[in-house]
């Protein structure tokens, strides 16, 4: 119940966005099975949301520690370039996967070390790799789009298992694994404690440095997965464009998911729904047939509406309205808004 209450604003926003798109594009919601796999715009949304969804998983943890990871887009480009190089070199798939994930992990550890050990501001620390990373990726690919023809690796981007496209499976599994590890262990609580008050947490013996490094490391791994998916998807590594600006979409997904940029309480599920909301807007705009000049305006307007409805001020006003109307119909059912969250269990 408590969990559902936490996710309610995001679920409502997603339903509203899908509803709005259906009004503009009839048949938007239909799903069929074609060539043994699920087919339809909803499926496209889940597939195309994969990179941002994966990034949002790691970004949620980083933001929960009161950090931010601007480098994830560049890390996608690096891991994509390296994966493509290895695939073009006919390395076995296992080697490609392990090396790429290893590079992503190394990038995450680098960020984490700058933030936790050298105490650089996260925005500056990760900006370093954001700028340098794309250069590294270009060095790896030699400045060109490095293409390959390898059905096994391409399967990651465009294959399907039991009718479900691989990118969807990957972000679902990654979200599930990270979510379970974080919530079934004490990592989640300790990360939240560090994000809310790092000093107080350190004084009770929480190893804040380890936790911060761990958050960035997971973010690096997620970026590596996202990088491989986009590379496999277009059968090539585009160092200039892979993951470009996706760090901002990932941050937006986390914010739509209701995790505060000032750290603390987080929800990976809510961030994933946030990623789906963003992609639903993207796909909806493409399907609508409007001229591309409107793309960014429509997206921005929709996001403003979503974030406004979620803002504490509006939420309080809304529940005030609800209380007013509620008490009109059923007397004495007024509940102070401050207690609502505490009571839900």
């Amino acid at each position: 119940m408590r969990k559902l209450k936490r996710l309610a604003p995001q679920i409502v926003a997603l339903v509203l966005v899908l509803f709005a798109v259906t009004l503009a594009v009839p048949g938007f919601l239909s799903i069929s099975v074609q060539n043994g796999r699920l087919y339809g715009s909803l499926v496209d949304i889940c597939v195309r949301a994969a990179p941002v969804a994966l990034l949002a998983i790691g970004m949620t943890l980083v933001i929960a520690t009161r950090g931010i990871d601007l480098s994830v887009g560049a890390v996608m480009a690096i891991t994509g370039a390296i994966a493509a190089t290895l695939v073009a070199d006919n390395q076995p798939l296992v080697v490609v996967l392990l090396v790429s994930l290893g590079i992503g992990l190394a990038c995450g550890l680098w960020n984490g070390a700058l933030v936790a050990l050298l105490d650089l501001q996260p925005i500056i620390a990760t900006l370093i790799l954001m700028v340098a990373g794309r250069g590294i990726a270009q060095l790896v690919t030699g400045g060109t789009i490095l293409t390959f023809n390898d059905p096994a690796f391409s399967f990651i981007g465009s294959g399907a298992l039991f009718g479900v496209p691989m990118p969807v499976l990957i972000w679902l599994v990654a979200g599930l694994v990270v979510g379970l590890v974080v919530r079934r262990s004490a990592l989640g609580l300790l990360i939240e404690a560090v994000g809310v008050n790092r000093r107080a947490s350190s004084l009770v013996g929480v190893r804040s440095r380890f936790l911060i490094v761990a958050a960035y490391a997971i973010s690096g791994l997620c970026a590596a997965l996202a990088g491989m998916i986009v590379t496999a998807d277009i059968h090539g590594a585009d160092a200039n464009n892979a993951g470009l600006w996706l760090e901002l979409d990932a941050i937006l997904a986390v914010v739509i998911g209701g995790t505060s940029l000032s750290g603390g309480r987080f929800s990976i599920t809510a961030s994933l729904i946030g990623a789906l909301i963003i992609q639903s807007l993207n796909t909806g705009i493409l399907m609508s047939g409007w001229p591309p000049e409107f793309n960014l305006i429509v997206k921005a307007a929709a996001i403003v509406v979503i974030l406004t409805l979620q803002s504490p001020t509006v939420a309080t006003a809304l529940s005030g309205l609800r209380a007013t109307f509620g008490s009109a119909s059923r007397s004495n059912s007024h509940e102070p808004t401050g207690k609502a969250g505490a009571r839900a269990k």
């Binding site: 496209d44 277009i234 585009d238 493409l286 399907m287 047939g289 591309p292």
Partner: peptide, 23 residues
């Protein structure tokens, strides 16, 4: 019939074409 931006990139070109096909 339809005209959308693909930002000169493969990824966006593929994504936009997918939506064209569905639409």
């Amino acid at each position: 019939a339809r005209s959308q931006t693909g930002d000169f990139t493969r990824t966006k070109g593929k994504e936009v074409m997918e939506s064209f096909i569905k639409a």
